[in-house]
């Protein structure tokens, strides 16, 4: 098999994996923003907190992996819930204050771990299952297949959850029109707090499946926030279909850049996409957030 024949399927497969990784990272951020209007800039901090929490439960308390995962998702969700009531409730609706408050919290979490000495190469999470298979001659490890599976599963879960459950329907009600939803008896603050909890729990799910591919390092927290914001801006911050399409665009753009140009330019893809989309269509490809202003 010549070089090109291997390269093309590799790019298709690894581009898809990369896209699902981006979608997994961005979905929690997007969910919270779409429902409560809060841009949770502590998202990277929650993501890293989840990674370190699993690591500590596994290594210090010797929890079984599955129990460590369940506890971590629950605790991170609770952290998001508490964050709303303790920090965001008082600044809700003041966008700049929301961003400052959540960003400060995120930086605080990340730098706390740095201060605690969580900075070396030893912090790695185990693969859910070791091994690999060949797909069109391209080796793909099971962990990456899990990522694709969990990414798709999460999208389906979100769809059914928001269409067929009481809490999910209240999410949609608040997202569509908060005042009308309140007049129908939906509690705005409770729903917003739950959206933050769900978004945070989704950050934990993303961390648990993605972090085994690398190590848990502090700068990952900052990188995750950049990814979530970039995907959100390109796709439309409150739009799940937009997030999926943006993830595919950025995921493939990154892999193609890394393969055919230079790997050190991969990070530039996010920044270039943010600048480009903000310049042409500030609401993103599927967003309606600023659509009226754009038309005017």
């Amino acid at each position: 098999m010549d070089c090109r024949k291997i390269m093309l399927p590799s790019i298709i497969i690894y581009g898809l994996i990369n896209s699902v990784i981006l979608a997994l990272i961005a979905m929690g951020f997007s969910l919270t923003f779409g429902i409560s209007g809060v841009a949770n800039f502590a998202y990277g901090g929650f993501y890293l907190f989840s990674g370190f929490l699993v690591w500590m439960l596994l290594n210090y308390l010797k929890f079984p992996l599955i129990l460590a995962i369940m506890v971590t998702i629950g605790v991170t969700g609770l952290l998001g819930f508490v964050t709303y009531w303790v920090i965001l409730l008082r600044v809700r609706g003041i966008a700049l204050s929301e961003v400052i408050a959540t960003f400060a919290l995120g930086v605080g979490i990340l730098e706390l771990f740095r201060w605690m000495g969580f900075v070396t190469y030893e912090f790695t999470l185990p693969y859910l299952k070791k091994g690999m298979i060949l797909i069109a001659g391209v080796p793909v490890d099971y962990q990456r297949l899990f990522i694709i599976g969990i990414g798709l599963g999460l999208v389906l879960f979100l769809y059914f959850f928001t269409h067929y459950t009481r809490i999910g329907l209240s999410f949609r009600g608040i997202a569509q029109n908060e005042r009308t939803a309140i007049s129908l008896g939906i509690k705005s603050d409770r729903t917003a707090a739950l959206s933050l909890a769900f978004g945070s729990a989704m950050a934990a799910v993303a961390a648990i499946v993605i972090l085994p591919l690398g190590i848990i390092s502090i700068n990952t927290g900052y990188e995750v926030l950049l990814i979530a914001v970039a995907v959100g801006i390109v796709g439309g911050l409150e739009s799940v279909p937009g997030i999926l399409v943006a993830s595919l665009i950025l995921g493939y753009a990154q892999v193609i850049t890394g393969t055919y140009f230079k790997p050190e330019w991969m990070m530039v893809v996010y920044l270039a996409a943010i600048v480009l989309v903000l310049g042409i269509r500030p609401s993103g490809l599927f967003g309606k957030f600023k659509e009226l202003e754009e038309r005017v």
Partner: peptide, 30 residues
């Protein structure tokens, strides 16, 4: 770049181009 933790773009090419040796120079934890 410093902080990178996904090396799959290079590894795909290593495999495709049938390189026999990978020479690396890194001191970052990732």
């Amino acid at each position: 770049a410093l902080g990178s933790s996904d090396f799959s773009p290079s590894l795909i090419k290593v495999r495709a181009q049938k390189a026999q040796g990978i020479v690396t120079f890194f001191d970052m934890p990732q």
